[in-house]
Nucleic acid binder design. Structure first.
Lengths: 180, 180
DNA sequence: TGATCCATGTAACAGGTTACATGATTGT
DNA sequence: ACAATCATGTAACCTGTTACATGGATCA
């Protein structure tokens, strides 16, 4: 059910079409919750049917009509109710850690190569987050409301990526002997 | 498809029944890959059908027959093939971070309460991991093969939990003003 | 000439959760 | 008396991914 909440949250800022939402879920919000456009269109349909969002068709020539959606009062209430419920911790499901467990069988050099590849991903994520943090939130102590929330979740992203990055370095160090 | 690989990996150590696998996926391996018993029985059926594991029925009186499964040569080959494929980074999907993004609407005190609740979870996880690390792997530099792999993934767990714990403390500090 | 952007969707499938079902044995 | 352990499963449902479908406008 949480995709619904992520969509409603995104619509707190702006009225957005499915297409625009899909782009957000590919970038900013997408760092914390991924969703494809197919999922989003389907969820928007349900949210509209149940009165949590309201779409209004904007006629266009030579391309499909745009349907921007706005959150309704009922939608806001739903977000507030959800905010009061406990958040289950995200379940970790990581191929790479399963591969670590299989080190009895798989060659250490192969595992090490995979960890190095993963390291690149986390390094670029971390760099992106830190650039945003420096540019958008240079004075964290002065933040309030929406901006404070964004800063706090960005801090989570930064700590998360740094943890994986440091782990990758440690793991490669430990595997070097084994693979050498 | 990755549940299949997690099961095959677990079967590298021991022949196990679905029931025993379910328990492992509720503890040790379960720290990195969760699965319910229903999923496991279904996957075992498919793995057996396709020749990656082999089950043998052990008759029992007064309770259902046990069916321990062993990994086959074909199963080992499949694990090796999988080990050579790149591991997609785990996608983060966390309610709590979406709630952070909705701080324009939801009361800071409510968010702070949720983060504190989450903090407890990560603190207890971290403590459990560190206890295992100290007890089972007191000399990390001397490890090889299977034990080295377990230690490396445990290190990931420790870094992951510590990152969330530190984040929770930082977030609560930032929210105290706002909520106060 | 080919790629990308805009803008919407359908359909099939794979993965995962929740509820239901049975039934003796052992521990509190 | 009640819960947990052992031990297997079925069925319905929800969530998420991949493939397919359309079609003009703009840019390299």
């Amino acid at each position: 059910m949480a995709l619904a909440h992520a969509i409603l949250t995104t619509l707190l800022d702006d009225r957005l079409t499915g297409y625009q939402l899909a782009k957000r879920f590919d970038a900013s919000i997408g760092f914390f919750w991924r969703a494809s456009h197919q999922q989003i269109y389907q969820e928007l349909y349900r949210l509209a049917r149940d009165g949590f969002v309201k779409g209004s068709v904007v006629e266009q020539v030579d391309r499909p009509n745009r349907i921007p959606y706005a959150i309704t009062a009922k939608g806001r209430r739903r977000l507030l109710d959800w905010a009061a419920e406990p958040s289950p911790p995200a379940t970790v499901k990581d191929d790479l850690l399963v591969k670590c467990q299989a080190l009895a069988l798989i060659p250490p050099a192969a595992l090490r190569a995979q960890i190095l590849a993963r390291r690149v991903h986390h390094a670029s994520r971390l760099e992106a987050y830190e650039r945003i943090a420096a540019k958008v939130f240079p004075r964290p102590a002065a933040l309030h409301g929406k901006a404070l929330g964004q800063h706090i979740s960005l801090r989570a992203g930064i700590r998360y990526e740094r943890a994986w990055l440091d782990w990758a370095d440690e793991a490669c160090r430990l595997l070097r002997r084994e693979a050498g």
